Simulated assay, not measured.
Amino acid sequence: MAKVLVTGMSGTGKSTVLRRLGLRGYRVVDTDTDQWSHWVTLPDGSPDWVWREDAIGALLAEPDDGGLFVAGCKSNQGRFYPLFDHIVLLSAPADVLMARIAARTDNPYGKQSEERNLILHHLAVVEPLLRATATTEIDTRIPLDETVTHLEHLANARRAPVSK
């Protein structure tokens, strides 16, 4: 079975689809924890929350007999794209993202105006970069079960090597 990266901006539904896929028996890893990610200081002095490359490398080197879904959106994730069968961008318009972030109760990120502004900035600047490297894009305005089913189909299909 395939190894699938599920990426996208805050509010697109990465954590929600991961929970649902986990309930369906798939192995899922949300990389927004200290086990998988850590803070680094960039050359310009700004902080960045990036993948722990040793941990992600070890995870992706494991056998994938039951399918693996990894969710995250980190500046260093592109280094691992060759190890995934599918790179899936979850997307939704800004108004949908902002409404979801305002309503969610399981993640405090995006409740502050500075965070919302950063999300909108990332939507304009980062999402096009993710779109250019994704093998599949899913607009998550469709029902959750349809998104999850689409991801399940990908887990059962290996992708032929693609150069991007």
Rank of each mutant, 00 (worst) to 15 (best):
G110H: 01
T135C: 12
F80N: 02
A103L: 15
M9F: 06
L144P: 03
L42H: 07
W39T: 11
G57V: 08
A71M: 02
V29C: 07
M98P: 03
L42S: 06
S91E: 09
R20A: 10
P93F: 08
R116V: 04
G67Q: 00
G66P: 04
M9I: 12
I142E: 11
S46C: 12
K74P: 05
S91M: 04
W51G: 00
W51K: 01
E127R: 07
P82R: 00
G22W: 04
P108W: 03
S113W: 12
H150D: 14
D34T: 14
G110F: 02
R104Y: 09
P82E: 05
C73H: 04
A94N: 08
L60C: 09
P108C: 04
D145M: 14
G25W: 09
R19H: 13
T149I: 06
V125G: 07
R104A: 06
T140N: 09
R131M: 10
E152M: 14
S37C: 13
T136A: 12
Y26A: 04
E146V: 11
H86W: 12
R100C: 03
S75M: 14
L120H: 09
N117V: 13
T33C: 12
V40A: 09
K14S: 04
G57H: 10
P47V: 01
K74Y: 15
A102S: 15
E146C: 11
V126F: 12
T33N: 13
S91I: 01
V88S: 03
Q77Y: 02
K111P: 09
V40L: 12
S10K: 02
R24V: 05
L68F: 07
V40P: 08
K14R: 12
G13R: 02
R52V: 06
I142Q: 15
L130K: 09
A132E: 15
H153K: 15
P47Y: 05
L23D: 14
D54F: 06
A102W: 12
